[in-house]
Every structure is written in C-alpha cells, then in structure tokens.
Design a protein around this nucleic acid. Structure first.
Length: 421
DNA sequence: TCTGGGGTCCTAGGACCC
DNA sequence: TCTGGGGTCCTAGGACCC
C-alpha cells in the first residue's frame, strides 16, 4: 500500500498562510510575467474563473468579483513545500517527493489504521504549516492518484480516501472518468473513448495485449496499475538529469541584439547554477529566440553549441551564447522569448576525456563555486557584466507577496495588543 | 500593451553496421 | 544488381505531467 498526500490548491493556499484575512476569499495566482492564471483556490473555482486564461483578458472580471490576484512567489511556495515534506517524512519509513505539492509515502509493512493515520497527517500539516492536504491510499501509485481525486471531490470523504479492498476498487473505478486517470490526457481520452472506453474500470478490464498494440505500453501499464498490479516502482526518479532548460518570456518585446544577448546570458547563468548544483558538466547546448506565436511573422531560430570539452564555466560559455545570438539575430523581428537548453550532461567526476582537448581549469571551477556560494547567501550579487542591462525586460511580478519565510526583511510581524512581539 | 515554465517517456524512422 | 535479417544509435515529434 502507498499513500499520496497532496496540497489543496498549493499556490493559492500558500498565499493565504500568512494572510488570515484572505481565508474564504477567492485567490488566483499568475504565471511568470503575470501572463496566465495558473492556480486558484476553491472559492475562485466556484466563481468560474478559467484556468490558463491570459490575465489581461480577465483583469476586469477579477477585480469586479473581488478576486485577490498574486504574481507567483516561488521562493515562498518552495520553502513551505520543503517544510511540508519534512513533516510528512516523519509519518512513513520512506517518502518520494513527486512535485512541489505532492509526495508518495510507502506504507508497506505497516499495520495501523490507515484512515486514522491519514487524519493525523491532515491535522498535523494544517496545524504546523497552515496547509490543507488530502490523502489517497491504494495498492499502486495510479490507484493512490484515483483515491486522492476522490478525497478531493467527495465532500463526505473529508480529505481521505482509501481503496483497500476489491469491492471498493470496483465501485470507485466504475464511476471514475477516464480523463481523470493519471497518464491519460486529452488525446488518449479521445482515442480510447472512440473504442468505447470511458471509465477507469473499462480501461482496467480491457485486454492488455490490445492496449499495448493499439495504444502504447504506457496505456497498458496504466490499466494494470488500475487493476492493482504494480508497474511503477516506488522510487522511479530518473537516475540522472538529462537536460536543464531555462526559457522565459520577456516583459516586453525586444528588437535589438544587446538586450536579447543580456537576457539569454542571464537564463544561461540560471541553468548553469542548476547544472553545478547537480555536479554536472554540459557538453552541448541549444540557444533559441522567437517572436510571439500570437502575432504574424512568427520567427523562431535556434543554434546548437557543441563544446570542445564538458564544462560548468558560465563565463566561457556565455561568450559562445552571445555569439550564437548575434549570428541568429534578425533585425526588425520582435523577440518575446529566448531559451537555453543544456543537454548531453556529464558527471563532474566521470566523463569520457578527450586526450587532445584541454580540460576546464581548476581555477574556473573554483571561481564558479565561489560565485554560487556568494549568490546563495547574498541573493545574486555576483553576475556577468553583460547581463547588467537586462532589468528593463526582466520578468514582471507586479503583485508578488512578500517572501515571508526566506527573507529577513520580509518576515511577518505579529502584533499583540498594539505591540510588536 | 499584455497569452507560463520545466520536465519525462515512448515511438517511429533513418543511418549505419555486420 | 538484387536480396535478407538483425541490431544499435540517434533524432524529431507526440503525449503527458505538475
């Protein structure tokens, strides 16, 4: 048996943790650049706010309905998430953090009352962090996902659903829509629907050879998991990272080469920090820049940069990125986004060495380590000179909440009888 | 004016080798 | 010139997830 614990409308709930005045009020959270609505709490959902709708289209409606709007505050969400995961790890022998707002817990070998255990989790996380969570329990990960959805949708479940016997499994799967099954997206829902499969139960009961032949092994595995046969192991994180991508839209279109270079080198810096954190080196990278998909004269070009030796040196690579941008830049184009993708990642201590090429020097490795250390503790004080002019186009987050938990200057202040305590 | 970002897995098809 | 099977590796694109 496994449990899946997930946070209820994570981003929106985070915004309310230090704002008790917002409880029971509608909240939505916007994507980077305040582009789209990417999260909302249940109150906002009930008002019919559409997910992934561009903010500029919804602005009036939102203010008319008194919806509280926030830019995304990843520092806050990330910090609260790690507190939640720390707490969860005290409830089971093994935990697999699946995303910022959910984790699988391993219950194999436990003989306790699973429903009571689930209620304890909900209570503890609510009390210690202020985050509402739900618990779904089942024999396979796919079944815990089903249980979790039921825990969310059925009010009398009170946030807990445990699929622990056959009758229960059949009853739930028969009314569980196919489109909500983990791993079945829009396209597969349509294709399977055309074959008459519209519920989780029908998928579970379908012929596995037929599923594999006409769909894919993924669909076959999902069906088996729904039957209670484990196909997705508890720990199935990829062994190594395969690529690191940083891609962002600018706050306004760019028509000159310099700022495009500056922003893209900034994205490179972010990707390289991640690279070094995973103790990796990069051998090949792809740089691209494009105009708006929504405008006429859409342009998008990319350039592949192959390094002579695997490297983690932001300074050396930034020169190549600058050159690549200069080479691909087309005057009169309105660029709205660029991307840096690091691929062909190598382990820092173990990679195929090239006898003829010169390796990255120890000196630059140390310089990068020092730079990361300073930035970690003092908030990105050291950066590449050429990115200095980027601020005009940097990401807009006009409605961001304070970093309550990660910045001394923004700690919440508690007042008691008029005095700060 | 303003339309997210970061990932993974699988498959099919081409190139190449024996 | 035709004919054959079997295998690997790589890439692009589709689909999905959070």
């Amino acid at each position: 048996m496994y449990a899946l614990v997930d946070c209820e409308t994570m981003y929106a709930s985070c915004e309310a943790v230090f704002r008790p005045d917002l409880r029971g009020k509608p909240i939505v959270v916007l994507s980077n650049n305040d582009g789209c609505i990417v999260a909302m709490n249940n109150v906002a959902k009930r008002l019919g706010m559409p997910m992934f709708e561009p903010y500029f289209k919804m602005k009036n409606e939102l203010s008319k309905l008194g919806v509280h709007v926030f830019s995304s505050n990843y520092e806050l969400y990330g910090d609260l998430s790690s507190r939640i995961m720390d707490t969860l790890s005290t409830f089971a022998a093994d935990i697999h953090v699946y995303s910022i707002d959910e984790a699988f817990l391993d219950l194999r070998g436990h003989a306790f009352d699973k429903r009571q255990w689930s209620r304890d989790i909900i209570q503890t996380i609510q009390r210690d962090i202020g985050m509402p969570v739900r618990v779904g329990i089942g024999k396979t990960k796919t079944l815990t996902k089903v249980a979790n959805v039921v825990a969310k949708k059925v009010a009398r479940a009170k946030g807990v659903c445990c699929i622990d016997d056959e009758a229960q499994r059949e009853k739930i799967l028969k009314i569980f829509p196919l489109s909500e099954v983990w791993g079945i997206g829009r396209k597969l829902t349509m294709r399977l629907g055309a074959e008459g499969i519209t519920t989780a139960w029908q998928l579970a009961e379908a012929d596995k050879t037929y599923l594999r032949k006409n769909f894919s092994v993924v669909v076959e595995r999902t069906a088996l998991e729904l039957q209670g046969t484990e196909c997705i192991p508890f720990h199935d994180e990829p062994e190594d990272k395969k690529q690191i991508v940083v891609s962002r839209a600018f706050s306004k279109p760019i028509t000159e080469v310099k700022p495009l270079q500056a922003l893209t080198v900034d994205y490179l810096s972010k990707a390289m920090v991640k690279l070094r954190k995973h103790r990796l080196l990069v051998e090949t990278l792809v740089v691209s820049a494009s105009s708006s998909r929504f405008a006429d004269a859409y342009v998008s070009h990319h350039k592949v940069i192959k390094l002579a030796v695997p490297s983690n040196d932001t300074l050396a690579i930034s020169n190549k990125v600058t050159e690549a941008i200069a080479a691909m830049f087309k005057p009169n184009s309105k660029y709205v986004r660029s991307m840096v993708c690091l691929s062909e990642l190598r382990d820092e201590g173990f990679y195929q060495k090239d006898l003829l090429a010169e390796e990255q020097t120890d000196r630059s490795m140390k310089l990068m380590a020092v730079m990361d250390e300073i930035n970690k503790h003092h908030g990105n004080q050291v950066f590449i000179g050429s990115t200095g002019i980027k601020s005009d186009w940097a990401m807009a987050r006009r409605m961001k909440s304070p970093n309550y938990t990660t910045s001394w200057a923004e700690l919440p202040i508690i007042k008691c009888e008029g005095r700060v305590v």
